[in-house]
Design a protein around this nucleic acid. Structure first.
Length: 213
DNA sequence: AAGCCTGGCAACCGCACGATG
DNA sequence: ACATCGTGCGGTTGCCAGGCT
């Protein structure tokens, strides 16, 4: 490494975190079919090699490693499921968002072939509006959080509403909460939950924010 | 037909975290 | 124990197509 280059690296590091790639020398924006083909063929032949930063250079792509990773994970890898979400998927996403919030990677893990980005976009552009439309149709300030969930959920939930410190909290229709925690500054925290085979901890900040609007 | 507006989605950004030396 | 690096994640941005006026 030349002294000049080393000095430049040290200088950039002293100004904060070093960028993951040289932005001036990488292509940005939409991927062309040729780039897709190049990346796909390289990974199918050699794998990722456990190093996304080095991959674009090896593959002969003028792209940032992060960009390659995103492109591969979201669009190029095998068994990607594209297209519309069905009612069942809507229902499960609603339940999981209510239970754990915007943990898209965890939510995506419940849908083989779906990506976190896909689910996040779907939630932000369609599902959220669908749900909000539902709430304003019922009442401006819902008395029961169960109103925030699609009506189809109530048939699955049994019981649909669990009372927590005087505030009705909807149960995730596909879950059984093993214990319910405290209500803290409007944030309802579920210490533990079991949801569609998943088990862990999380908090329903989304539910509380909707409840207080 | 043309310009404007809006919604959807692909991609980027920056932070947090874990692994490694 | 600390610094560095690479990866993963969630939030945000910007482009584009389609609808509306």
């Amino acid at each position: 490494m030349s002294p000049c280059l080393r000095q430049l690296i040290l200088l950039t590091q002293s100004m904060g975190r070093a960028p993951c790639c040289d932005k001036a020398n990488v292509k940005r924006g939409p991927w062309s079919p040729e780039e897709d083909k190049q990346l796909k063929e390289f990974i199918e032949r050699h794998g990722t090699g456990g190093n996304w930063i080095a991959l674009p250079q090896k593959a002969g792509l003028r792209r940032c490693g992060k960009s390659c990773r995103l492109r591969w994970l979201n669009y190029l890898r095998p068994n990607i499921k594209l297209g519309d979400f069905n009612e069942d998927e809507d229902r499960i996403i609603c339940g999981l968002v209510a239970a754990i919030g915007s943990r898209w990677s965890i939510i995506a893990a419940h849908f083989p072939g779906r990506t976190d980005n896909d689910i996040k976009n779907y939630w932000n552009t369609k599902l959220k509006k669908k749900l909000l439309g539902l709430t304003t149709k019922h009442t401006k300030k819902p008395q029961q959080l169960s109103l925030l969930l699609p009506s189809t959920l109530s048939s699955v939930a049994a019981p649909a509403v669990a009372d927590l410190e005087g505030i009705p909290i909807p149960r995730c229709p596909l879950s059984s909460f093993t214990s319910l925690g405290h209500q803290n500054g409007g944030l309802v925290r579920f210490e533990e939950f079991q949801c569609d085979g998943m088990y862990g901890t999380g908090e329903a900040s989304w539910v509380s924010s909707l409840y207080h609007c």
